[in-house]
Amino acid sequence: MIHVVAGILIDPQGRVLVTQRPHGKHLAGAWEFPGGKIEPGETAPAALRRELREELGVEIGAIEPLIGVPWQYPQKSIFLDAYQVLDYSGTPQGREGQALDWRSADDLRGLNMPPPDRPIVSALRLPPFYAITPEPGDDDAAFLERIDQTLASGASLLQLRAKHLSRDRLRALARETQARAGASGARVLLNGNLDIALELGLDGVHLPAAELLQLKERPIGRERWLAGSCHDAHELAHAAAIGVDFVVLGAVRATQSHPESAPLGWTSFAELCAAAPLPVYALGGLAREDLDAARAAGAQGIAGISGFLAVP
C-alpha cells in the first residue's frame, strides 16, 4: 500500500485550496488536495511539510488530522492521510506548473476529483457532533421545543429518529423540524423513510444497517446526504461500496438502551475506522467530553441520542 498525505489549506474567506493534476499523470485534469507520497523513513507530517514546500512554496505550521482514507485502485492500493493546516506562511503558487483554485467546501462537490479525495470533502463539510433525537413522545410541541433548544446550542447536523410514529405524524414533524433547522443553517436527516425525506426535500436520510445491507447502489443523488448505522467491518465495507457519505459506528461503550451488546471499545473502533474510506462518527455511551478520544481514534466526531448535544 502506498502511503500519501494531503494538506487542507483554508484562506481567510473560508475557501479550500485545490490543485489540478497535470497531463501525463494518473487521473490527469482532476482536482485534488495538494500533497504526495511519503518517502521511506519519513513521518506523515514531515512528508506534508516537504510536499507543500515543493509544490506550493509555503511553510506550514500547526496541523491536525482530518481523515485517513484507504483506497483500492485497479492497479494500486493507497492510504491517504489528510491533515487540516491550521497556519502557514507564504502565498501558494503552482511551482510544478499545476493550476490552483480556491473553493468553498460545498462547491468542491461539483469538481472532478480522484475517488479518495471525495471522503475528504465530506469530512470538511461535516461538524464534530451529530445530534440524534430521542423517540418523540405524545407531545409534539414539547419535542419541537427540544429541537429548538438543541439548534440554539449550536447543533448543525441533526437526525430525526422517530420509528414509531404514523406516517402522517412523521411527515408533519419532519416538516416542522426542517423549517426550524433551515432557519438556523442546520441540516436534517430522517432516519429511514427515504420517500418522505425526498417528498419534503430534507437534507438527507440515515439508514439502519439492515436497510443498508439490502441496497446494491446509492438510492439518492449526491446533492443530499446519505448516512448509515454500522456495527462491524462487513457493514462498513458495504456502506462504502454503495456510496454512503458517512456512518455512525458503535456502540463504543456499554449503553442502557442495549445492555446485552458487547461494546467495541476504542481499540476496536480505531481499527475499524482506519479501514473505512469515509467519515465515521463514534456512537454509544459517549458524551461531548469524549470528542478528543474519538478524534484520536480516527473519528469525525461524536454522535449521540438522548439530546446530550443540547449544550454547545
Rank of each mutant, 00 (worst) to 15 (best):
L48P: 00
E96C: 10
G110S: 14
F33R: 07
G154K: 10
Q149Y: 13
L66H: 12
L52D: 02
A123Q: 10
A99N: 08
V18H: 06
Q72R: 13
E54Q: 04
P65D: 07
L158N: 05
P114S: 12
F79T: 15
A30M: 08
S77F: 07
A62S: 10
I38N: 07
T133A: 08
V121T: 12
G94Q: 01
E55Y: 08
W102M: 00
Q72A: 14
K25W: 08
R21N: 10
R125M: 14
D138Q: 13
E54G: 02
D148C: 01
L111A: 08
P70I: 12
D87R: 09
G14D: 00
K76L: 13
R118L: 07
G24W: 15
E96W: 15
P136S: 03
L151F: 09
A142C: 11
I78A: 12
P115C: 13
G110W: 05
Q72D: 14
V58A: 00
I132Q: 00
I120N: 02
A152E: 10
Y88A: 01
R109L: 06
K25N: 02
Q72L: 07
G29K: 01
D139K: 05
A30D: 13
I132E: 05
E59L: 13
Q13T: 06
V16Q: 02
V16S: 05
T133G: 09
N112P: 01
R146S: 14
L108T: 10
L126W: 07
D101S: 12
P70K: 09
F143M: 09
G57C: 04
S77R: 15
F143Y: 15
E54S: 13
Q84T: 07
E39S: 12
T150L: 15
D139M: 08
A131E: 14
V58Q: 00
L66F: 13
T43S: 15
N112Y: 02
S104T: 14
R146W: 05
L17H: 00
A99K: 14
I147W: 14
L48E: 01
L126N: 10
G36L: 04
L52Q: 09
I60W: 09
R125N: 10
L158H: 07
Y130T: 07
G24M: 14
K76C: 13
G36P: 05
A47M: 04
A99T: 02
H26L: 12
A152G: 15
M113P: 01
K37C: 06
Y88G: 02
E64C: 05
H23Y: 10
L27E: 12
G97V: 01
P119C: 04
G41P: 15
N112K: 03
A82N: 00
L111C: 03
L157V: 06
Q13R: 07
I67V: 04
I132G: 05
A123V: 11
L124G: 03
L158P: 04
S77W: 12
L100W: 13
P127S: 10
W31Q: 02
L56V: 00
E42T: 13
